[in-house]
Design a protein around this nucleic acid. Sequence first.
DNA 1: CTTAATTTGTAACCCATGTTACAACCGGCG
DNA 2: CGCCGGTTGTAACATGGGTTACAAATTAAG
Lengths: 222, 222
Amino acid sequence: MFETIIRNPLFRGLQIEETEELFAKGLYQIKKFKAKDIVAMQGEPCNHLMIMLEGTVQGQMVDSSGRLIVIEEIPAPFAIATAFIFAEKNELPVSVVALRDCEILFVRREVFTDMLQKNKTVLLNYLTVISNRSKFLSDKIHFLTFRTIKSKIADFLLKRSKQSGSQTIILEETQQELADIFGVARPSLARTFKEMEDEGLIAIERKKMTLLDVDRLKKLAM
Amino acid sequence: MFETIIRNPLFRGLQIEETEELFAKGLYQIKKFKAKDIVAMQGEPCNHLMIMLEGTVQGQMVDSSGRLIVIEEIPAPFAIATAFIFAEKNELPVSVVALRDCEILFVRREVFTDMLQKNKTVLLNYLTVISNRSKFLSDKIHFLTFRTIKSKIADFLLKRSKQSGSQTIILEETQQELADIFGVARPSLARTFKEMEDEGLIAIERKKMTLLDVDRLKKLAM
DNA sequence: CTTAATTTGTAACCCATGTTACAACCGGCG
DNA sequence: CGCCGGTTGTAACATGGGTTACAAATTAAG
């Protein structure tokens, strides 16, 4: 467990012994979840820091008509809800759903506050973490509100290609999963893929995509 | 100046003398801006905390095609860019534009870091402020990505009506300003207002709006 | 009071995306 | 091998919202 915790950005730079001291017995709780379990519901007050020890969860926003957008995926060793525990209205803005079997460490707000006060490294880490978080959310706003499907795809493919260092990408996600990330309907996504193929931007072979015209893709992604 | 600063949520609970100590001479800079001046550009690195002393600025996102969304308005005594100064990629996600003549206090990141370390009240205030900020951004994502124009209007009118404690609202914003907040085109907004009037939801008389069917409006706003 | 500038109301038209539906395909399992 | 559930490709159609344009109403300025 502590091996996982020190890989979390909040506890970066700490020795295992230090974290063992911070997480004394009784100060935390470990819960297990099965795949597809709901870990926490959108709108619920959020009084715990949740550190992923095992598995992956997904942060989802749902609207009244059932439309869903996946905001992010959080695997171990990262933490959930870091940014909200100190907000005045600390309701979770997303639902948290287990993608696979998970083990999650729960720490009450007051306990975490103590950690921040006791340990300066944790405090400075925390400042960075929630600043990054704000940056992430702002970028998300930009991504979700300005872009057409085509430019979302271009952006996505270029990022993936950069990650893998290759013009050819094997998608791991189904179309439905991508559609949820982009916040669009699945057939609209498929149609746009085809349009981009027709325009000579990419070549598609089921889940294998090849970037043909990187310059034009970059222009599309802005 | 210090009268303004202690009204800022970051320095809430401090005595004037304390803030005078924190803001020793040479540790800050005051700049003046005229209405419509650009205070800071989207994408620029952001190494200063900016505290509004006088006037109001607007945080705007613009995309490559010139479409604009107003994310927020920040009047004195509030601060700009609180959340980004500690991010690893600390580029401003918005452009900051002066709405009227402004006076803004600039504090370098390192100086602000010192304040956080010296003064625990400021530190705890800061945690609350940036947590609130994350909440605000999450809500913004929800508002901008899920809602139709109609439900955005319903949400907006209900909030205003709650604020004023009356079914009748006098809008201060022009349609164009509202359209920028909602991230939609002005004629689309006007059209939707009319549709809602035709449906008996509201009565419109130029800038005076009366809520006629609050229940149905609530349902629309979710 | 007159004129110019801004804001509002509206219409016609276009385009991107959503919806629904269904066939083709693929991968795993009995 | 043949069936079945999930995934992909695609088409027809509906719709919300953007764009452009312009006239009417209102406000600001001289």
